[in-house]
């Protein structure tokens, strides 16, 4: 464990709880893409099946359980409890256009052709693009609530911090996972446009709105 990974994990955790708290406190999930949340739930469930097969540490297992539970809770709040506030007519990204190609790619490009490894690879690929429905929704409505942009900033920072972690691990531990690194780069690149808007607007107290 190094500082980049720890801060990355905490940033990830913060993102999920910022979103949960926003929905819970405002009793509304307006402006949040339910499709991205379903994809994240799928990401965690397919990646953390190894909870049952190998034990790393209490920290590792605990975080996995928290990630799965909190994301499933977000999906529950959006699609059941606060369904009336869900902005479905702006959340029109077709997730099959992500899930199907990513599934195919996981079958073709993986470290090992075993069920758990293919699901892990699927999860890594899917995570890299899972935010697209959310970004698509913001581009459709042209704006995002400030709290939603804080969520996105924390979520995007997590993978960027993991990139630093992989550089660190490559030099100091000889660790290198090409699949994770390539997917992590793709994931971070997708946030670049948002990071720019966040830094130039939200950090200066302005609302995130897209130029017309």
């Amino acid at each position: 464990m190094n500082i980049f990974r720890l801060v990355g994990d905490l940033s990830h955790l913060l993102a999920i709880f910022v979103l949960l708290l926003k929905i819970w406190k405002s009793r509304s999930c307006a402006g949040v893409s339910g499709k991205s949340q379903i994809l994240f739930a799928l990401v965690f469930i397919t990646r953390y099946l190894d909870l049952f097969t190998n034990f790393i540490s209490v920290y590792n297992s605990l975080m996995k359980v928290i990630f799965i539970a909190s994301t499933v809770a977000t999906v529950y709040l959006m699609y059941i409890k606060f369904k009336a506030t869900y902005d479905s007519n702006h959340d029109t990204f077709r997730i099959e256009f992500l899930v199907v190609p990513v599934g195919g790619l996981a079958f073709l490009v993986n470290h090992d052709f075993t069920p758990l490894e293919i699901l892990w690879t699927f999860s890594i690929y899917l995570e890299s693009v899972a935010i697209l429905p959310q970004l698509f929704m913001i581009s459709k409505t042209g704006e995002a609530e400030t709290i939603t942009s804080h969520y996105l900033f924390a979520l995007g920072s997590y993978r960027a911090l993991y990139l630093l972690n992989w550089i660190y691990r490559y030099y100091f531990e000889g660790y290198f996972d090409l699949i994770a690194v390539v997917a992590g780069c793709v994931q971070t690149i997708l946030y670049c446009d948002f990071f720019y808007l966040y830094i130039t607007k939200v950090m200066w107290g302005k609302k995130l709105s897209l130029p017309a």
Binding site: H12, I56, M63, Y170, G174, Y175, F176
Partner: peptide, 10 residues
């Protein structure tokens, strides 16, 4: 450079 068999990251 090797990919570890056990995945210790989240």
């Amino acid at each position: 450079r090797k990919t570890p068999e056990k995945k210790d990251e989240l």
